[in-house]
Write a protein that binds this DNA or RNA. Structure first.
Lengths: 232, 232
DNA sequence: AACCCCAATTGACAAATATCAAGAATGTTT
DNA sequence: AAACATTCTTGATATTTGTCAATTGGGGTT
């Protein structure tokens, strides 16, 4: 599908300083496609042929090694993924699959690299985007290095709670198996971690988690803006 | 100390496409300082006031949370650190200390941000640098998520072996306590991991580690270019 | 309602890792 | 060389996490 001009893409900080012509050129080369759930979009080790955006739905970034698999991140609208591989013209380090029915925008990597060479404002926008990505991974890494599984769960719940407007409960963004993998633990362990948090007012009701005592949960979690704050 | 013009800095990919005037301007604002070992250069949470380069010696990037501390990376000459925080004008996510007597170049963050705004080639060089950093952290994260301690050690040894020219032994880049922290384990566990690797031809002699059977160590480690290869 | 399917939980156990305490090895100072 | 401090290793034990197997408990379908 060609000739797409999605306002939600145009307004991304990556593109909002780009000229109309350059943006149209990118979009004319791009593909907008609908995928069902559980479709593999790319695999680690493949050449970076496209830059991807999640327009609707949700994408899991995951990786395999030594017989294990882990979900490294969820990407939701409107987020991009594997920008670094595209710019460096190297292979992907992560695989990606749709975790639900999704609408995906794919821009050929060569067009991105051309625009990067030609368009100064675009190059600068990419810097800030990449710097943000870098900081996000550093935070994930610190989370995994410096916290136990229960602590990671507690802090994740508090983070979701804040982004969802702190209504006293949390809507999980995915099934528990995926949440466990995002948190770097097994599903069995996640169940037990929820059990451990029960005395801190945490009650699981399907995809919804009631936070009955945010104060005591916070004492346990010891949230740290240098790990948990999405904006810093 | 002012008016520094270190050729090893000038030739970094970050700066080699920069004009002489711009580079001189940066260097005129910069400080080149010698520090003894174990000096804290900056602390996580501080405003990003300087971009740092290790000219000589070695710097540890580390972080604290929930009563634990972990070394996240070693920076050796000539490497920079905390570029992302400087560009986004945000607080540092990691702390840094010299692990030995070191010569450090400090460039005021505002000068870096000015040069980034003014100099298109510099902005593009930063993109490739940041993309590389991003990929490096993703690899560290995958290493920690997808491998056991013994596997991480085995792969680290093989990686050092290759970068040191594969002479049949490896010179450790730091003391074992620090190596353990880099690998995300305790010193006791590192000792035991070395013990586990003895049947695979690994013999520890102080800071030197003899690799007597690289083939069988490789079978155990299952090295993966998407985690271990520094260039991809 | 009966059935099935799948996600989720639970229990029993095993593996990996951390902690604490002691001892060995190493290098440095005197 | 003796004394000392430091790093490293080892043993015993506790905690954390993973694995395997069985069971529970909805959500759909027929």
């Amino acid at each position: 599908m060609r000739i797409v001009d999605l306002p939600e893409i145009r307004q991304l900080s990556l593109f909002d300083s780009m000229s109309d012509e350059s943006f149209s050129e990118l979009m004319n080369a791009a593909y907008l496609q609908n995928f069902p759930a559980q479709v593999d979009l790319l695999h680690e080790g493949d050449n970076a042929d496209f830059l991807f955006f999640v327009v609707e739905g949700c994408v899991e970034l995951y990786a395999n090694a030594n017989g294990r698999e882990g979900v490294l991140a969820l990407v939701r609208p409107v987020g991009s993924f594997i920008l670094a591989a595209v710019l460096r013209n190297e292979v992907y380090l992560m695989s990606a699959r749709t975790s639900q029915k999704s609408r995906i925008l794919m821009i050929p990597a060569q067009n991105i690299r051309d625009a990067f060479k030609r368009d100064d404002a675009f190059a600068r926008a990419i810097v800030l985007e990449l710097a943000g990505y870098f900081r996000a991974v550093v935070k994930e890494y610190k989370d995994l290095r410096l916290r136990t599984g229960v602590e990671r769960l507690a802090n994740r719940l508090l983070k979701y709670h804040i982004t969802q407007g702190a209504p006293g409960f949390v809507q999980l963004p995915c099934d528990k198996k995926t949440l466990a993998s995002i948190l770097g633990m097994t599903p069995e362990n996640l169940s037990r971690a929820f059990g451990t948090l029960k005395p801190y007012g945490v009650d699981v009701v399907g995809q919804k988690v009631v936070l009955g005592d945010v104060a005591s949960l916070t004492v346990l979690a010891k949230p740290n803006p240098l790990i948990d704050d999405p904006s810093t």
